[in-house]
Simulated assay, not measured.
Amino acid sequence: MKKMTLFILALSLSAIASAQITVTGIVINDSIPLELASVMIKNSTNGIATSNKGEFKLEAKKGDTLSVSFVGYKTKELVLNKTEDFTFKLDEENSFDEVVVVSCHNATITCYKGACGWYREDVSLLDNKSGKKNKLYPNPSSNGIFQLMLVNNYNKVSISIADMSGRSVQNTTQQKFGKKGTIDLSAYPTGIYIVNIIADGKRLEPIKAIKS
């Protein structure tokens, strides 16, 4: 009886193990690897961002739907049936509505609304005169806590954070910000987020935050 129980247990564990698969692959646009593309198991918090070579490795189960997305590109989905090395070629999102705003802080701003949210073309309002960049660290962050380091000091900083679908998940405003602050995404799922910053009325360059 004991041997039979152990045999049944072994079969059960084997069945569970066989349902688990390791998915690897690369995300590209034509032949160019897409770094920081979002690779997610649909309807879960299981996901990862691609490396600087566009590569990813993810544990999944047979029957899971893999969703691959990147800002400005059409999302692709695939039902997983076996362990395989996949190549995802993403197509650029062409369905944009263009809006032009003239004479805003002496600059012309062009905004586009696509499947993943709003994007803008605007060089004159970006904080890049010094050649330095505003940044988050650590990035990726395993616990979702980021330190935001800005190039300049600011009195008032408003931060709006959106997920990869363009949905706003967090909005905060801090007075007497200085150069350094904290962004807390610990309560949100693993994935890539876009951090939009307005500092003393000036829109800074968006930053990608990766919760791994």
Results as ranks from 00 to 15, higher is better:
Ser186Ala: 12
Ser212Pro: 06
Ser12Glu: 04
Ala15His: 09
Asn94Tyr: 09
Thr75Phe: 08
Ser67Gln: 05
Asn143Ser: 09
Asp91Val: 11
Met4Pro: 02
Ser18Arg: 11
Thr24Gln: 04
Tyr73Val: 06
Leu58Met: 00
Leu90Gln: 01
Ala49Arg: 00
Lys180Glu: 10
Ser130Trp: 02
Lys129Phe: 11
Ser142Pro: 08
Ile16Ser: 09
Thr108Ile: 08
Met149His: 07
Ser44Asn: 08
Ala60Ser: 10
Val157Met: 11
Glu55Thr: 08
Glu77Gln: 13
Asn81Lys: 13
Tyr193Trp: 08
Lys57Tyr: 00
Thr5Cys: 10
Phe86Pro: 00
Asp122Met: 11
Ala115Leu: 11
Phe177Asn: 00
Arg120Gln: 12
Thr75Ala: 04
Ser186Phe: 04
Ser165Cys: 09
Pro189Ile: 01
Asn171Ile: 15
Ser51Asp: 07
Ser160Pro: 03
Ser168His: 13
Glu93Gln: 10
Lys3Ser: 05
Phe177Thr: 00
Gly72Arg: 09
Asp163Phe: 01
Lys156Thr: 08
Lys202Ile: 15
Leu11Gly: 15
Ala17Gly: 10
Gln175Asp: 05
Ala162Ser: 14
Arg167Gly: 03
Phe86Gly: 01
Ala19Lys: 12
Ser38Trp: 03
Asn155Phe: 08
Lys211Gln: 07
Lys176Leu: 14
Glu92Val: 13
Ser38Pro: 02
Ser158Val: 07
Lys179Met: 07
Pro189Tyr: 03
Asn106Thr: 10
Glu205Trp: 13
Ser124Leu: 15
Leu148Trp: 03
Tyr73Gln: 01
Gly63Cys: 09
Asn134Leu: 08
Ser38His: 07
Ile8Cys: 06
Lys211Trp: 02
Glu35Tyr: 00
Ser103Phe: 12
Ala162Val: 14
Tyr119Pro: 02
Asn143Thr: 07
